[in-house]
Design a binder for these strands. Structure first.
Length: 202
DNA sequence: TGTCCGATATCCT
DNA sequence: GGATATCGGACAT
């Protein structure tokens, strides 16, 4: 199968579907002429104004969460705990706040560059968490609102023909959102590839 | 202008 | 397993 970049239409499917289809796709950043990145192995869905765990709960709009409302295929990135960036991709149509949080990658491209950016050698620890992978791929606020699907994009997703059968996908509650109350924090909207050694610890 | 706190990582025991 | 680093956005004052 030919390698190709994911087009806009990919991100216009339902957010739960996109969250699962992203498993096995490759996130690539062209950084200083080097391709760095890896295969997505863990994601989380945040779905609309009804989702109490979402930053857009109740239809809230602020300068920080505006990118959530963009049409599918844009970057929503923000800082937590004063030091960790969190990478999300918008899904759905313009005006509808839905997104997928990228929680973990299996390093595949430019691993030595990522090791340098993280100042760490252990491959298992390189991109196995949402904050870690942003540091490894050198992603921060400069990519806020970035369009993954634009021509000559420096940040994009690739289908390299890896198949991820439904049987290999596990799901469970999202991480770190207890504040959203039992109903929303229990929803099994976190997805990962079973037995993959690079998923986050949670 | 001030206070509060998080969609985490890391270091310590 | 537990503490805590560190900061900008949100919202109250």
């Amino acid at each position: 199968m030919k390698v190709h970049r994911l087009p806009r239409e990919f991100f216009l499917q339902s957010t739960l579907k996109v969250s699962q289809l992203l498993l096995g796709k490759f996130l690539i950043h062209e950084y200083r002429g080097q391709k760095i990145g890896g295969m997505i192995v863990e994601t989380e869905a945040y779905i609309g104004p009804e989702d109490r765990a979402s930053h857009a709960f109740g239809g809230k709009q602020t300068p920080r969460n505006l990118a959530e409302y963009l049409v599918g295929g844009h970057v929503y990135i923000y800082l937590v705990y004063g030091m960790h960036w969190q990478l999300n991709f918008s899904t759905s149509f313009h005006g509808r706040p839905e997104c997928v949080l990228i929680r973990a990658l299996e390093p595949t491209d430019g691993t030595f560059v990522m090791q340098r950016l993280r100042r760490i050698k252990d491959i298992r620890n390189l991109t196995s968490g949402p904050g870690k992978l942003c540091q490894a791929l050198k992603l921060d606020k400069s990519y806020y609102g970035y369009d993954l699907c634009q021509k000559n994009s420096k940040l994009y997703l690739e289908d390299r023909g890896v198949k991820t059968p439904k049987k290999q996908i596990a799901s469970g509650p999202r991480i770190g959102i207890d504040y959203a109350g039992p109903h929303w924090s229990k929803k099994p909207w976190r997805f990962w590839i079973k037995n993959n050694p690079y998923i986050s610890k949670g």
